[in-house]
Design a protein around this nucleic acid. Structure first.
Lengths: 114, 114
DNA sequence: CCGCCAATTGCGAAAGTTCGCAATTCGTGA
DNA sequence: TCACGAATTGCGAACTTTCGCAATTGGCGG
């Protein structure tokens, strides 16, 4: 049954999330399912590139796809991807505000530095 | 001031987390600061490899390092990395339990399939 | 049935990542 | 000062990922 250590799976998950187009897709799908066409017009990417990124997300079970007429509609597979994105946003905004704070301290001539 | 879109930053963050050794390091540091030596004995990696991964985490501001005598001690930089790891664990355990459920359904000869 | 549009897949070139070896830095004790 | 151990850095080879082009699939209207 050759099981994979949990930290390998976690790394894999993060690696799969580590592309701007895939992040964009997941963010857009947070507000509900969308056809490929709409994703395509919202994201700056070629159709073929989008398909490939969607395939990655599908294979890893983060999104589901179904045909509706001649279009294909994608949706988030589980509710918890959103948690992950939220945690990432939180960390980033905190980090960025920390940086700008540091920056303004560095630029602030009033700040006494010994 | 050439700012980076937030989704780029997010993708970058996930990409940086997408390596088993780096995940392992962050998990170990959740219980408090550790010297490189201890990380080295806990993780299956060469010293030089560990250094490189630590450098990645340092550059991206996820951990901090300081010398204490002849050893270097690493610590988590902000409390929110833990949130991210927790969200990942949650998603994975859910996903895995879903898989094993599906698997047993597939293997279960009693299950009627039309 | 045919042509068209939406989406996907196969494939090869380019770009990026990881790994270990050799060399370097830094601090400590002889 | 010298040798040593801890940790890091530079560098090149092996591997993985990404990208766009060309070809393919599947559904729909004429």
């Amino acid at each position: 049954m050759m099981s994979v250590p949990l930290y390998e799976a976690k790394a894999e998950l993060f690696r799969l999330l580590g592309h701007p187009v895939r992040i964009r897709v997941l963010e857009l799908l947070q507000d509900g399912p969308l056809p490929v066409r709409d994703l395509l017009s919202a994201i700056d990417v070629e159709p073929t590139g989008l398909s490939q990124h969607l395939a990655v997300l599908r294979r890893s079970g983060m999104v589901t796809a179904h045909r509706d007429g001649s279009t294909v509609v994608y949706a988030l597979a589980g509710g918890d991807v959103a948690d992950l994105l939220r945690a990432a946003r939180k960390l980033l905004t905190q980090k960025l505000s920390g940086q700008s704070q540091l920056l303004s301290e560095l630029l602030d001539t009033e700040t006494s530095v010994r």
